[in-house]
């Protein structure tokens, strides 16, 4: 977040200033990548680079403050992620046989190695119980630090719909946490209070 200095940084970026673009990159790239990882995007870094390059190309069309700028950037990232997902589905990878993996990784459990290699590209367990729409809202709200109004703009949804998705997404998180810790959180009674069952 740049705060009051955002306008100067943006003006310098419009003029092609490298330092300004470096600051914008260091501020935005990790968050964009995290948002993409939260969706399980396997090429999160590449999509982040493409997103920022599109920001460079289309910056002359943007007009607004920092919050609007972040919403605009994540709108681009969201669309880029959808494109990358479609592109990946159009060209499915050729999976290797388990025997081949065992031969390549002697002495290791190839399944554990594959999971470890995937790392954050896999869907985070905390978000596994949420629907894609709920994940969109939760990631944009708690990873990208956007307000629900800004989330509604990014996702091109109505504010009421986004608010409902947010509430249901939190309920899904509570259910996952309760299941993971052995405690059950009642969605009805969890509004502000944490209850244990059993």
């Amino acid at each position: 977040m740049f705060g009051d200095g955002f306008d100067r940084v943006l003006a310098a970026a419009r003029g092609g200033d490298e330092a300004a673009w470096t600051r914008l990159y260091l501020d935005l790239a990790p968050v964009i990548t995290g948002y993409l990882r939260g969706h399980g995007c396997r090429t999160a870094e590449d999509v982040t680079s493409e997103t920022l390059l599109q920001v460079v190309r289309d910056l002359h069309r943007f007009d607004g403050g920092e919050s609007a700028f972040r919403s605009w950037v994540f709108t681009i990232a969201h669309h880029r992620m959808i494109d990358a997902t479609r592109h990946g589905q159009a060209r499915p990878s050729d999976p290797a046989e388990p025997e081949e993996l065992e031969a390549a990784l002697p002495g290791q459990d190839f399944e554990e190695a594959a999971i470890a290699e995937l790392g954050s590209s896999e869907l985070d367990p905390l978000l596994a119980g949420a629907t894609p729409d709920q994940r969109d809202v939760l990631l944009l709200r708690y990873v990208a630090d956007l307000t629900l109004h800004e989330v509604a703009e990014v996702l091109d949804k109505r504010y009421d719909a986004v608010k409902a998705l947010h509430r249901r997404g939190l309920d899904a998180l509570r259910a996952h946490i309760a299941a993971d810790t052995g405690r059950r959180v009642s969605p009805r009674r969890a509004r502000g209070t944490l209850t244990t069952s059993g």
Binding site: L127, Y159, I177
Partner: peptide
């Protein structure tokens, strides 16, 4: 406009952010 978050849920969200 946010949904209120209980104290037990907030650390999980922070850890999620830190992981991603």
């Amino acid at each position: 406009d946010d949904e209120p978050i209980e104290e037990t849920l907030r650390p999980h969200l922070w850890r999620l952010r830190a992981r991603l």
